[in-house]
Design a protein around this nucleic acid. Structure first.
Length: 192
DNA sequence: CAGAAGATCATCT
DNA sequence: GATGATCTTCTGT
C-alpha cells in the first residue's frame, strides 16, 4: 500500500478530486487503524470561485494558499468538522472536500464515535466522516503525505466515477456567475 | 420520503 | 453581529 505523495495533490483541483475517488482514507488514532474508500468529493477552486473559502485570503483560508498535500480542517455550524485536502496546481489555490466514504477498517470504533449501533448513515456526509474518524481542528495543516495519523493510500483505479453535479451558488444577491461546485461520486460504489 | 427547525461557535465584516 | 462546504430530530404525507 503506497501513501499518496505530493505530486498527486499538486495538480488541478478538479483532476485531484476525480482521482481521489476509490482511494483509501486512513486515520490512525491510539494505534488503531480506521479507514474507508472515498466515495464522494467536492472540488473548490481558487479565488475566482465564490463557493470556496479561498475567495478571500484570511487566516482561516491561508492553509489553502500553502503547499499541496496538507489537511484543511474547519468547524462548521459550531458543531461539525469538515476535512479537505489542499491542492496546488502550480501557483493556483484549491482544496477537495471529503464528503463520503465506504467504511472498511475500524467500523466498530466508528460506530461508537458516531453513537450508532448499525452502519446506516455511518460515514455518508462530511461531518459524519470527521466524527467517525476522530478528525478535528487539531489536524488542520497536518501533512497528508508524510504524516502518520491521517493520509491516503493508493487503491486500484476505478473507472465509474463521474460528476454528479456542478452547481451555482448565489452570494449576497444575484451574484451567480462565479461559484461552481464540482461534485464527484463513485457510481456503483459498495454500499454500507 | 420531503421539508422545517435548532444546535452552537469559529470566523469574518 | 451575522453567517455557514452540516446533522439530527420532528412533522406530515
Amino acid at each position: 500500500m503506497r501513501q499518496l505523495s505530493y505530486d498527486f495533490y499538486a495538480r488541478d483541483t478538479v483532476q485531484v478530486a476525480r482521482a481521489l475517488l476509490g482511494q483509501r482514507l486512513v486515520r490512525i488514532v491510539d494505534g488503531q487503524r480506521l479507514s474507508g474508500l472515498i466515495t464522494e468529493v467536492e472540488a473548490y477552486t481558487g479565488p475566482d470561485d465564490l463557493a470556496s473559502h479561498a475567495r478571500r485570503r484570511t487566516p482561516r483560508s491561508e492553509i489553502m494558499y500553502g503547499p499541496a498535500g496538507r489537511a484543511y480542517v474547519y468547524m462548521i455550524y459550531g458543531v461539525h468538522f469538515c476535512l479537505n485536502a489542499v491542492c496546488k496546481p502550480a501557483g493556483q489555490v484549491g482544496a477537495v472536500l471529503f464528503r463520503s466514504i465506504y467504511p472498511v477498517e475500524g467500523i466498530a470504533v466508528m460506530r461508537q464515535r458516531r453513537g450508532l449501533t448499525g452502519d446506516r448513515g455511518l460515514t455518508d456526509g462530511p461531518g459524519k466522516v470527521c466524527q467517525a474518524m476522530g478528525i478535528d481542528q487539531t489536524l488542520n495543516g497536518a501533512s497528508l503525505t508524510v504524516g502518520r495519523e491521517l493520509f491516503i493510500e493508493e487503491e486500484a483505479e476505478i473507472a465509474s466515477a463521474q460528476v454528479v453535479s456542478t452547481k451555482r451558488v448565489g452570494v449576497r444577491g444575484d451574484d451567480l456567475a462565479l461559484a461552481r461546485l464540482w461534485r464527484f461520486i463513485w457510481v456503483g460504489r459498495p454500499r454500507r
